[in-house]
Design a protein around this nucleic acid. Structure first.
Lengths: 338, 338
DNA sequence: CTGAAAGCGCTAACAA
DNA sequence: TTGTTAGCGCTTTCAG
């Protein structure tokens, strides 16, 4: 391994001069500078980042944790995080937990042990170190920002949309376009996303003055397959639905298929609305009406919050809520304007 | 920041003893050991990974580079890489390049500067440092494994499927199920994947004795939207096709939509076959016939290759080719068995 | 079994 | 403008 010392020797200067030509070339006389540069090229030297970071305290590596990268919804968020991060001089690495605590902790350890500077958490799991600090009433042990999910009482910045309101909007849309027996395929109730969206469904129904009948609700795990299975159950349960709110687009795509394979049509027999606005939803048959989350803004806000945290600024711990939007396509009946 | 020194002081031992209780507890007398552990708990100490890595030379952090994580095809590969990596004691971080050289180089710098131990490359771009080393006839400057893409003459281990043969298989399937005027929506010709699959199409056609007529071929960029656009062009070009081979499933999904919106049916009027076997393809209307790549095996092989490299073993540089598989669904005409 | 001390490769005072 | 040097936090001989 070639070190700064080797360069210094070969160029006939001190290590300090080498370090300077690297970080403040204008502070080195041109002849020495070029000798150093020559030596660097000759020996193919690359400064050791580990050693550098041991001296300087600042970190340019950030970690974004997602439950699964396979979920296209996260991509938009991650992309905007990356764009901002890049501008701000950070490097972003993505860690996938597959909802396993050990994997999550493995990544959290990196920032606990200062191998990375901070964490943006997109999933519903919390690192053990964070849970522990909460239990002990201690501060969170490293720079942490939460996006998408909501955790009651966690003292750190977070950004999301109002999932409950968004779900209610979806249900209201179904109602306004003529559905009267509206069911739901809910997400897992183990995380706040699933719970909030189900609550929104319930709230909308009760605001509309309709009773939630039995056989109107099934739970999935956000996957296409589970959406398909849940729809089959809904179809078989005698709920006699004419509209279904799916807690995400993937389940809606599975539901679409289930409806079709049962000889029914969408939106004719059963209207469908999803959540997230995946690219694939727009190209489904029929194209899926959905709720769009502002993924770009979500990512950007999260990244700026983390940057503020890293800069040592005081950051507001009240959740920031961003606006959602209904995207009307053909899987719900069309509104007659006016 | 609490350091090993603080622990040593509080426990009334030397730093060496603290280090030992951390890494070889059995070599420390129980009373001291527990005093150290108590101090660690009291002060909430976490060893600094940066400092540790500066001393020890081994790296447990690996980077996997993908062009875009939004592409669901990569997820399967990444997941299996992660599973194996975890068993082997590595930590995997994912870097997304969005096909930009500067981002790629940014990640490559991490391993160049020993902030990470090695790289698995899933895209079609090569780090500048690698290109440079090839030009100079030098060895590749860090542990590198290539997956999915093919690079002529790069002296490093790689694993992929035989894309040309797989594409030819797809075209033959179209032919065997009755298509006689077979077009293609090719991938970008700037990368080997796109080229190999187009060559496979050409080869199959010529083996079948059919002439590639003009208006049979359009190029997309692997996105749904580009598939849609390419199919519209194909439809308008008078090629009068009854079957189309799409170089990936996303373009096939876009093409499906284009065909339907033109009032035609699949497979009745135009049969369609994709490539990659995305989850979304199985739930398209109609479900997409496709070529499946062994994503699990691809990832596992790549990861084992990198491990071998990291262990200092000599690794074969001849590309490893894995088997692909035709998955018949309803977007191609059904074969009459016997 | 334990402690002192020598670095790992680099940066940043400080002195020249 | 340059060189010398003292660490950054940790592991690991080497002597006790």
């Amino acid at each position: 391994m070639v070190t700064i010392r080797d360069i210094a020797e070969r160029a006939g200067v001190s290590v300090a001069t080498v370090s300077r030509t690297l970080h403040a070339p204008e502070a080195v006389r041109p002849d020495k500078r070029s000798r150093v540069q020559q030596a660097i090229a000759d020996l193919n030297y690359a400064p050791n980042a580990i050693a550098r970071q041991l001296r300087k305290r600042r970190h340019e590596t950030l970690i974004v944790i997602v439950p699964e990268i396979a979920n296209p919804f996260f991509s938009g968020i991650i992309q905007s995080i990356e764009n901002i991060a890049h501008d701000l001089g950070y490097r972003v690495l993505i860690g996938e937990t597959q909802d396993r605590q050990d994997r999550l902790d493995h990544y959290a350890d990196m920032v606990l042990s200062r191998a990375a500077g901070g964490l943006i958490l997109l999933g519903s799991l919390l690192p053990s170190a964070v849970t522990a600090s909460m239990a002990d009433q201690r501060a969170i042990p490293f720079p942490l920002v939460l996006a998408c999910e909501r955790f009651e009482g966690l003292p750190c910045p977070s950004v999301a949309i109002d999932n409950q309101a968004a779900a209610a909007l979806a249900v209201r849309h179904l109602w306004e376009t003529g559905c009267r027996r509206i069911g739901t395929i809910a997400g897992p109730q183990s995380n706040s996303l699933g719970r909030d969206r189900l609550n929104g469904y319930r709230k909308a129904l009760s605001d509309l003055g309709v009773n939630l009948e039995c056989g109107w609700m099934e739970e999935g795990d956000f996957s296409i397959e589970s959406g398909h299975a849940a729809m089959m159950r809904l179809l078989g349960s005698g709920g006699n639905l004419d509209g279904v709110f799916c807690a995400n687009d993937e389940m809606a795509i599975g539901a679409l298929q289930a409806i079709r394979s049962s000889g029914l049509t969408t939106p004719g027999d059963i209207a469908l609305i999803g959540f997230d606005d995946l690219r694939f939803g727009a190209f489904a048959t029929p194209p899926l009406t959905t709720i769009r989350q502002p993924t770009g803004e979500l990512g950007e806000t999260a990244m700026r919050m983390l940057d503020a945290l890293l800069q040592g600024g005081v950051v507001d711990h009240r959740p920031v809520l961003l606006a959602h939007e209904l995207v009307e396509r053909q899987s719900t009946k069309q509104r007659v304007d006016n």
